[in-house]
């Protein structure tokens, strides 16, 4: 009975929301700040990927907050799951294909990950996408050989310094008399690899941080799982 009421309530809520959202002008959004950003972004940030100029330029503080959230989640998971990991003797080792494939894929995934990070200002992609691929590259050996351990101290070192360098690049702008997180060193070479000033540096920091953060979260979960 309670379930039925719940379902009816949810259905009614959905219809109400649909009716309200139907009032939006779909397919022709107002794009008040969107079109202004499109017009100004290439000149102001030097990135051809305008989403990148929003993520690292116009809304850079959001990105910083989001990195902090990932960091907070990883630190909290570390607090919850503790440090001591029992050796994963119970879990079986991955099969031949997984082990061999993992070995072959690791360098390829690293290359692709860094490629995506470095070309984030030119092509679709960037620090988040590349960082996730990096994390997957480090996680693959863990799947193949459950006994393998990631170096948590190295990871936390990368976590710390990648996050700190994002802020330090921002503070550098402040020290030069500009605003916090203002892009620096913009050159007039739109479309080139070295065109967007400090943005690729920021994306490198984002990519490393996301990669390290996710890798440590995943390995922590996997190792706790293994101890069961």
């Amino acid at each position: 009975m309670g379930n039925l009421t719940g379902l009816l309530f949810a259905g009614g809520l959905g219809f109400m929301l649909l009716a309200i959202a139907g009032g939006l002008d779909f397919g022709a959004p107002p794009m008040l700040i969107g079109s202004a950003i499109q017009a100004q972004a290439p000149a102001e940030t030097g990135a051809t990927n305008i989403v990148t100029s929003v993520v690292l330029g116009y809304r850079a503080i959001d990105t910083l907050g989001e990195l902090s959230i990932l960091f907070a989640a990883a630190a909290s998971a570390g607090l919850v799951l503790g440090r001591r990991h029992t050796s994963a003797g119970t879990q079986t080792e991955g099969g031949f294909i997984l082990r061999t494939g993992g070995g072959i894929l690791f360098p390829l995934m690293m290359t692709i990950g860094f490629y995506i990070i470095f070309h984030g200002h030119l092509t679709p992609g960037g620090g988040f996408q590349g960082g996730v691929i990096l994390a997957a590259a480090f996680f693959l050996p863990l799947l193949a050989r459950p006994g393998a351990k990631l170096h948590h101290s190295t990871l936390s070192l990368i976590e710390g310094f990648a996050g700190a360098s994002f802020i330090l690049v921002g503070l550098l702008a402040l020290a030069e008399g500009k605003a916090f997180l203002q892009p620096l060193l913009i050159q007039d070479t739109l479309g080139q690899l070295f065109s967007a000033g400090t943005l690729p540096l920021l994306y490198l920091a984002v990519g490393l941080k996301v990669g390290a953060e996710l890798a440590s979260l995943l390995s922590r979960l996997a190792q706790t799982e293994a101890s069961q």
Partner: peptide, 16 residues
């Protein structure tokens, strides 16, 4: 902006 940036910086570096 420092009142937000510096605590974040400290938090990132503190474990190290």
């Amino acid at each position: 902006a420092l009142t937000i940036a510096l605590p974040l910086l400290g938090a990132f570096l503190l474990p190290v």
